[in-house]
Design a protein around this nucleic acid. Sequence first.
DNA 1: ACAGGATATATCGGTCTGATATATATTTCG
DNA 2: CGAAATATATATCAGACCGATATATCCTGT
Lengths: 182, 182
Amino acid sequence: MEELSATAYVILGMVRKEPRSGYEIKATVDGTTRFFWAASYGQIYPELKRLSEAGLVIGVDSPTGGRRRTVYEITADGEEELRAWLRQQPETFEMRDEGLLKLFFASALPRAEAVPILRAMREHRLAVNRHLREMEPLAEATEDEFTLMVLRSGLEFTEWFAGWCERTEAQLLEPTPKERSN
Amino acid sequence: MEELSATAYVILGMVRKEPRSGYEIKATVDGTTRFFWAASYGQIYPELKRLSEAGLVIGVDSPTGGRRRTVYEITADGEEELRAWLRQQPETFEMRDEGLLKLFFASALPRAEAVPILRAMREHRLAVNRHLREMEPLAEATEDEFTLMVLRSGLEFTEWFAGWCERTEAQLLEPTPKERSN
DNA sequence: ACAGGATATATCGGTCTGATATATATTTCG
DNA sequence: CGAAATATATATCAGACCGATATATCCTGT
């Protein structure tokens, strides 16, 4: 069998915790992993078909009234595949931060105009932090300690980042090294 | 005119600092922004054509012997476009961290097997940190203070993250809350 | 002279996002 | 009650983006 995409493992991991429909998988991803691994319908539905064909999940028809609905469960093969993946060294780490990118090119603007970039970055990190903080009680209530562990990394990360923005902004308000040396 | 992709602005920013060929743009991106904004040949060359057609850059034929080579310069319109973008609120922030994803699903493994995930994450962050540290003297030498500012964010980030991994690993080696309460 | 690496451009398969389309079920509220 | 809004559910498409590969030339070390 071919290698699975990372999204396939997100799906396997999610349906292992609890059988779910594609829609529910998407909702759960949006509520949990999206800060470090997102997934869209455009991936989820085709991937569910592939996983189903490969026998790693089983789709069970569970219509709600006249609305068709398929709930997927993980198979023994699927669990095995998931565990094998978990035991492999993580490869992918990517970040795309438009704020840092703008800051990198900020010499194209008057120096003072870099301040709003840092402010916007800080606001955004703080907004995410507040959001994560709201999720904390729920994560504390679950059996799974890793949910909370990962959530705490998000809390710490956003706090560190917001702090960096603040300190860097302060540094920008000071005179430049060139000006100081005059 | 249509809206430009973020990669288009990476190109504009890079050729504004210094006229460059597509190959040189890629090399510079790999040496600088790649940690928070990457770009591949598959984007760069088509985008250079579009930007050239839109009059935001000008391609100047500068062959090296018999090897064709086009060096791109930014135009006044291109600079204007770049500055307008820099003044807009940054939108995109994305992260894809396979380590955190694996940790999130680590309840599928015996508890102790989460340790190698955290170790691998820490090793990776430390490797990036060492790499950035090597680049520091170069960044310190440049006129552009934002280069160094952004590099320092990478240094701090990797240090924070490596520290988090270390602390979280220690936490895993302690007994579970359940075991403690017995 | 030749191999290996650097410079330079181009392109393709596959992943992934964000938006949109379609349909049904449930809730809200005048 | 009935209409409107919202939630559930699946499907698909254009475009962004990555990683790899192909092709060709130039430079350097031995």
